[in-house]
Design a protein around this nucleic acid. Structure first.
Lengths: 117, 117
DNA sequence: GTTTGACGCAACCCGATGGTTGCACGTATC
DNA sequence: GATACGTGCAACCATCGGGTTGCGTCAAAC
């Protein structure tokens, strides 16, 4: 049940969530405020509340944030765990590439020989 | 030396490049073949050569692959370095979030404060 | 010299996505 | 009860992005 395939279930959503600059900005703000609602975040952002809501939904889908209902408002909090997992995924992937590149250095040779500016 | 901006130029492109599943598939294939051209990759993918070309362009823009002209064909190779850098960026970000969450557990407090009749 | 294969460019299609506005509903507040 | 605030839902718009097809071109192979 792990997930070391080339495919990418959870990673997919995390990367998709992180890909948008505005979304990273929302995350940044949320991390700074520790906890916030969509409306308070929207007040500090150049976009509408509804836009923030959508972003938060995507972020939550990726597991990057978590929401808690408090009476009539929805409080959001940042979740670092998923980020760590994704970073490790990247590390494994990079290591894999490195391994493959290491086994055949003659490509590097070719690159250096041909890609000389 | 920090970089806690919402911006994050290079990371931006890497994440954008990695966000697409097909692109990750291209990367995977490329890593497996060690080096390949757009045409050979397209042969093993369910998409057209032109589509692969576009993907490779984006990947190269993000620094994830590197191209080398060999006679009349363009050879691509995977570049692990940027992945590592991005992973480290994620780690730092996650650590930052953790720090913030750790210093204030009073989210629960806030919840209780607001939910108190 | 003609054919073959690979590249690059450009136009085009269409679905996804970021963003907006408007409104209805529930929940506090007066 | 009336009012104000916050959320949720839905329609709508514009752009972007992944993908395609077609064509011109240039290096190799015959």
């Amino acid at each position: 049940m792990n997930s070391q395939r080339g495919g990418s279930e959870g990673v997919d959503r995390v990367l998709a969530a992180l890909a948008d600059p505005t979304r990273r900005q929302v995350l940044d703000l949320l991390a700074a405020e520790r906890e916030a609602t969509a409306t308070t975040l929207a007040e500090r952002l150049p976009i509408s509340r509804q836009a923030v809501v959508k972003h938060l939904a995507i972020l939550e889908d990726g597991g990057l944030v978590s929401s808690t209902r408090v009476r009539r408002e929805l409080l959001y909090v940042v979740m670092p765990a998923v980020l760590n997992a994704t970073a490790r995924w990247m590390d494994r992937l990079a290591a894999d590439w490195d391994r493959r590149l290491a086994t055949i250095r003659h490509i590097v040779e070719a690159v250096e020989r041909d890609s000389r500016p």
